[in-house]
C-alpha cells in the first residue's frame, strides 16, 4: 500500500503511522458538554466505503496528513495536509 504524501509524493506505507479517523481534527469546544465530548473521545463510525483517516509521515517529512480511503476496495483516493484541513 502506498500513500500520496502532499509533501513527498507517493510513499510506501512503512514510512507512515496510523492514528485513526480524522474526526480527531474536529475537537469540540471545552464547554460543548459531556455528550459531545464522549462522542469525540469514545465513539467511532465503522464505515464500509469511503473514510478519512489521520496518518503521520514519521519516516519521511514529519507531516500529519488526512488520507481519503475506501475500506472496501482499499483504493486510496487522495491526501491533504492536516494543518491545512484544520484551518
Amino acid at each position: 500500500m502506498r500513500l500520496p504524501c502532499p509533501i513527498c509524493g507517493e510513499r510506501d506505507v512503512r514510512e507512515f503511522t496510523y492514528k485513526g479517523h480524522a474526526v480527531a481534527l474536529d475537537r469540540p469546544a471545552p464547554n460543548a458538554g459531556d455528550a459531545a465530548w464522549e462522542d469525540y473521545v469514545h465513539l467511532r463510525e465503522n464505515p464500509a466505503g469511503e473514510t478519512r483517516e489521520l496518518w503521520y509521515h514519521g519516516g519521511g517529512c514529519g507531516a500529519w496528513i488526512v488520507v481519503r480511503r475506501n475500506t472496501v476496495t482499499h483504493e486510496v483516493l487522495g491526501a491533504e495536509l492536516a494543518s491545512e484541513v484544520a484551518e
Binding site: C8, E10, R11, D12, R14, E15, G59, G60
Partner: peptide, 19 residues
C-alpha cells in the same frame, strides 16, 4: 529503503527522508 531510487525520480541534487 522503500524509497523509489529510479534514475528519473531521485536525481543528483535531490534529497529525501525515508527509512
Amino acid at each position: 529503503t522503500p524509497l523509489d531510487l529510479r534514475e528519473n525520480l531521485f536525481k543528483r541534487g535531490h534529497a529525501a527522508r525515508s527509512l
